[in-house]
Design a protein around this nucleic acid. Sequence first.
DNA 1: CTGAAAGCGCTAACAA
DNA 2: TTGTTAGCGCTTTCAG
Lengths: 330, 330
Amino acid sequence: MNISEFAKEAGVSVSAVSRYFNNGYLAEDKKEKIEAALKRTGYMPSYSARAVRSKVTKLIGVILPKLSSESISRVTEGISEVLGEEGFELLLVNTANDYNREISSLELFRQNRVDGVILLASVFTDLHRSLLAKMRVSVVIIGQQLKGYNCVCHNDEGAAYSMTKLMLNKGAKQPAFIGANPDDKAAGLDRRLGFERAVKEAGLTVDPKYCEIAKFSMSSGYEKARRLFSNRLKPDCLFCATDNIAAGAMQYLRENNIRVPDDVMVGGVGDSRFDKVLYVPLSTVHLHYKTAGIEGAKMLLSEMKDGSEVHRILQLEYEIIERESTDKHC
Amino acid sequence: MNISEFAKEAGVSVSAVSRYFNNGYLAEDKKEKIEAALKRTGYMPSYSARAVRSKVTKLIGVILPKLSSESISRVTEGISEVLGEEGFELLLVNTANDYNREISSLELFRQNRVDGVILLASVFTDLHRSLLAKMRVSVVIIGQQLKGYNCVCHNDEGAAYSMTKLMLNKGAKQPAFIGANPDDKAAGLDRRLGFERAVKEAGLTVDPKYCEIAKFSMSSGYEKARRLFSNRLKPDCLFCATDNIAAGAMQYLRENNIRVPDDVMVGGVGDSRFDKVLYVPLSTVHLHYKTAGIEGAKMLLSEMKDGSEVHRILQLEYEIIERESTDKHC
DNA sequence: CTGAAAGCGCTAACAA
DNA sequence: TTGTTAGCGCTTTCAG
């Protein structure tokens, strides 16, 4: 059933029906007629047809590198909360860390499919940049900074710095590092830089032998910890760029009877749900993931309204959470 | 730029352009002309306009009760994998466990917005049923069984039964239970029934004083464990309907110096990532969440193609994973 | 194989 | 306020 059939059925004009669904002015009796007919027929206007004319899809494209990640799903939850309230739905693309899919979804979103885009990317290539430039709808980037775009990000450098410093302040002399791919500026490079700043500030030097790069998984953390500790090396503190990596590393330590925090302190980033139930509760840095999603969504909505050309960067701060894994008294 | 402007620019007819994008027959020279113009102009056809005519949105509506849950995001990952390959995108609605939002998204999906629907609901009301009946597109339900619909579900009863039995076989005599809302047939009721079957089969009786209902969170598991253990009660094994609940409960046990598994064995369900890094590695039941997503998506695709009226129920089996939390020798 | 033209279901400008 | 009607951008007959 289409609008004109329905209008006939309801005994009103087509425009009356259209106005009914678009909050236009309408006489009370027609409203009632329409509502009665609605009950009888179960008619629903077609969103696609509406989108063709009004150029509004009420859809926001969200591109993410992964679905089953606690941090990412918290961000998404924040996004969905704000957007849902404003009557927007999420067109969600999981790129599974595949750049090609990231690129192709950006392409997809150019086909008048969405009113705005939120991008949670890990690595930006030139291709990303050129595709983003072609975008005709508002774009907000969450978790990274990219010049020329509205961004919501975390203070990754500061978070890593503070956590590392916390451990060095407790007397650690031989810091180790398990980080992420440095092409990922936020979680990879910045957290590495924060670690290095703290180390240097403590009058120590960053020894590449004590630094590893892991994937974002427990098993990778486990693997890298093995390399770090099985090699005659004796770190007395270990900073991990994510809690997943830290949990994996601690698993290795437990299996090899390396005591936490006595032999080695461990610190992570992310404040994962499981941190406090680990065999040694993990010190971590809380990053405001959900808030990032909320603020990013708000930013997008306001840019979609005002279309301002001034781009803003919102950097969220962090909070250190101390637990047993760094609780060492020298 | 629209299709006719673009056709003019490319020097071909409108239908040639349309055919180009729809794999219709087209002379080689026109194809080339179009591709050249495409490079020049960056033209992209409008999906909404296409959807109006062809009634195909290439969108699948996915309704979930929560985003930041490991089990749910694994299901979603499976869904997105299969659907992505077939050129479908996900219109994702997070209902945040709010029935109203579940209902309203079902309404939303009736507006010709999607080609199919995948529903991950926890509780079915009559309103759900009547709305589902009005759906004009294919529907698949994952994680629950509902008569008259294609479903992919787990053997929740069996999983709970086996895990409980495992603990009783090790000599436990006073089993305790922390479950979920029984209105949730799968995770609530069925897991409860599985627990009860194992208890009765062991010649014991189910004592309501030893049974609690928790929310799906660690903190709720913690809270319920307090009620279970602070009350002169002395359970010697504890079955939890989810790993999150189990982790929270174990947190309480640790804080109160109740030893696992010596004083009380603990078993969960879900095979969460963090299980093996808990202070006592947690025995659990692996449920094939990702597979459920994959199979559910395939089911939807095939129903969308064939439109068969015969509905199928696919029940996935489970695997017991034994770890230290149940490793007791009597 | 091709192009002209008739819609898809809706919104919005316009005249009443 | 209303109803009529011309499109929105595309697909898909249909006649060539």
